[in-house]
Design a binder for these strands. Sequence first.
DNA 1: TAGTGGTCTAGACCACACT
DNA 2: GTGTGGTCTAGACCACTAT
Lengths: 238, 238
Amino acid sequence: MRKLMPMYYRLAYDIKLDIESGKLKEGDMIPTEEQLGEMYGISRMTVRQGIALLTEAGLIETLKGKGSFVRLPKLNQLVINFHNASSTDGEQFRYKLLSAKMVYDNHSYAQQLGLAPDDKVILLRSLLYKDDLPSAIEEKYMRYLRGKPLLETQLEYAAFPEVIAKHQDSVPVRNEMVISVDVLSLEQANLLETEPFQPVMVITQVIYSKDDVPLGISRMVCHKDRFQLNATSYLGRL
Amino acid sequence: MRKLMPMYYRLAYDIKLDIESGKLKEGDMIPTEEQLGEMYGISRMTVRQGIALLTEAGLIETLKGKGSFVRLPKLNQLVINFHNASSTDGEQFRYKLLSAKMVYDNHSYAQQLGLAPDDKVILLRSLLYKDDLPSAIEEKYMRYLRGKPLLETQLEYAAFPEVIAKHQDSVPVRNEMVISVDVLSLEQANLLETEPFQPVMVITQVIYSKDDVPLGISRMVCHKDRFQLNATSYLGRL
DNA sequence: TAGTGGTCTAGACCACACT
DNA sequence: GTGTGGTCTAGACCACTAT
């Protein structure tokens, strides 16, 4: 707050402080837009800009014809930042491509891509290293497109949604993730240089186009001690 | 789109369609605010309202003095909706309180609450049922406050952030979650009516006040086959 | 009917980015 | 300097909620 902030921000910040300190409680109505305009000596459109900030932050809820009311931050809504695909601390992974091949048979994942039985599907298999320890196995499935070559550099380093964005002609607009738990197979244990039947986190991502066509599927099998996910409630920022 | 939508929304929706269809590509500059005003016959403030929608949705990024540029939705940022604490399908859990007691010793979780060694900490232990199957064990730790009685009904049914909101005098403003993997202890296996050493998902939540004081800690141990987490990229909505 | 937020205007001046 | 977005005004009319 050291720089000169715009009036709509000061207004929003003041109300935020009142909410966080408990001066304004859940369900309380904040002053009307006209009143706030008088209080701060600003026009109503400027007040509304501040109100919009608070609404975006999830701190208030405005009801047409009634007013704006305090609503405590939604702590049940949490955000995962998966780009820095969080290892146990916050460090980046090193990718190593294991294989890149066509899958012709009706693989369970390939089927989910909604393709005709004879469509070609690419399977990319990578190992993710953290501190030179193999920490996760990732399998990426995507439709094969002629004239969309896969560059090795991208294969090695790019995260899943980026790979899809580069190598499919539809624009990816949605990512659905499922986090579950399983045990390591013998082959997976070998790759992760650990014992089989160890517990693992399984992270499955499906990327969709605007028409809800699945463009790609990723399945990550993550070592128990070398991987964890972090999430944080994202609302309440100002 | 069947009802008459305001002009700023039509503008935003048109641009959204152009992005999703690929007509506007990543990095492209959209028309200037003045141009958009002329194109739609609306004033600049109204244009800016539409631009704000697109920015909120994460579809564009505006740079002062330069313009607004297309930015594909951040598929690496995903939202978990934890209030309907997603079981393997989407159903609600039934809570059963196992115990509610004071913890006096320096328990590892109690320590994290940043209390003096002789402060009292409440430990609530619950079992979460899904389809009459025990699916998760939850342990909630929170500071004991005189004059803030814990109502049994709330203990049984409320999700963690709600319990904190009711029973602490500071306003909870942030929730940090860590998702990891472990194996069941003998006692946990008993409670979940399954074999020990089975893999489990461990979900730890820490609720903070505005001063970053931890108000409560929750640790959920979730049965492999009866629990999974779902997350979805939240941007790109309009 | 009175009070509230929702939409919109037609300007203004400013700060920042380029060239 | 020109072009861009950022802030702000002083109004207007509308739609919805309450009484």
